[in-house]
Amino acid sequence: MRRPTTTDLYVLAWRHVRRLPDAPVRGLAHLVADLVWLGRSGGVRQLERNLRRLRPDLDERALRRTSRAGMRSYLRYFVEAFQLPGWSHEQIDARVRAVGVAPVRDAVARGESPVLALGHAGNWDLAGAWASRALAPVLTVAEKLPDGLYEEFVSFRASLGIEIVPLEGGSTFRRLTRMARTHPQIVPLLADRDLTAHGVEVDLLGSPARVAAGPASLALVGGHPLVPVAITYERLRGADRRRAGTPWGLVIEFAPFVATADDDGARRGVADVTQDWVTALFERVARSPQDWHMLQKVYLADLDPARLRSVPTAGE
């Protein structure tokens, strides 16, 4: 008998989790999150290293409490991803509260395609499903995954109104640049972790880190507005909770546009524009650190020195 693959398990979850009652599924997810947190896996330890640098004001007790809440938030994202294909448009709208969205909506109305700089926080799939109807068609990039899992993710996101470009080296940027110019749309890019050899070194609230160059590069080359966007969870109560059918809602906070040109009209550099969106985004992420699902290495102190050669830094 063939042993189930990761893809098999994802497909099984996408087909059946949506049919299960919400409360028991969320309760099970909390239990799994707590067990993983108690097990002190490498991912949990890395999460705490990241949180310690993001929020150096937290003492050890507060850090452990935040990392536990972080694992619950992370598992909540997965549960919602499996439930999302079964949600109605009304349920999606009831779960989302957008802050500062008017300038983005105006830019789309002018025929522009804003580039959104996102972190791995909250539920970006739910945000994309909401934005594909509330704002404009959504175009983004996804890492290629093994064993057919990438195709499943592409199919899942297509059902939400999200078009995917695979991450395949230099051709990805050229294709994304071309597609972003075809019609007004929004282009959200998860960029708080560099998956290439061309990342940018930044000051992430006081600690050196490496992030993706994509948002700044695309905005500069294509002449698109660049918007940092923070995504966090919030508790729903009363009528809001009844409409959503869940205790958790999503806040999508659109920060002011990042300047891509100097006062004299000269185009700014990728590194400086990247630093600006990182600062704007993470000042907001730091307010809800438990929703930053970063179990991988981001800060230079944790990264392999061999990967850090020839990395541009802000100001260069």
Rank of each mutant, 00 (worst) to 15 (best):
M1R: 13
R3T: 15
R3Y: 10
P4K: 07
P4H: 08
P4A: 09
T5N: 01
D8S: 02
L9A: 15
V11R: 15
V11T: 13
W14P: 09
R15Q: 14
H16T: 15
R18C: 06
R18T: 10
R19M: 10
P21M: 05
P24Q: 03
P24A: 05
A29Q: 00
L31E: 10
V32C: 10
L38I: 11
G43C: 02
G43H: 04
R45S: 09
Q46G: 06
L47Q: 12
N50Y: 01
L51E: 05
L58Q: 01
D59A: 03
S67M: 05
G70K: 04
L75Q: 10
Y77M: 13
F82R: 06
F82K: 09
Q83H: 12
G86Y: 04
S88T: 14
H89C: 11
H89P: 14
R95M: 14
R97V: 14
A98S: 13
V104P: 06
A107N: 03
V108H: 01
A109T: 08
G111A: 04
S113H: 00
L118W: 10
L118S: 05
A121N: 11
A129R: 15
A131I: 11
R133N: 05
L135Q: 02
V138Y: 04
A142C: 07
A142Y: 10
F153G: 06
S155I: 10
F156K: 11
S159L: 08
G170P: 15
M179Q: 15
H183C: 08
I186Q: 01
L190R: 03
T196R: 05
V200L: 02
E201K: 11
A209H: 00
A212P: 06
P215F: 05
A216R: 05
A219W: 06
V221K: 11
G238P: 09
A239W: 12
A244F: 10
A244G: 11
P247C: 09
P247I: 06
L250P: 02
F254K: 03
P256C: 01
D262R: 14
V278W: 01
L281F: 03
E283R: 14
A286P: 04
R287T: 13
W292T: 02
V311I: 14
P312M: 02
T313G: 14
T313Q: 13
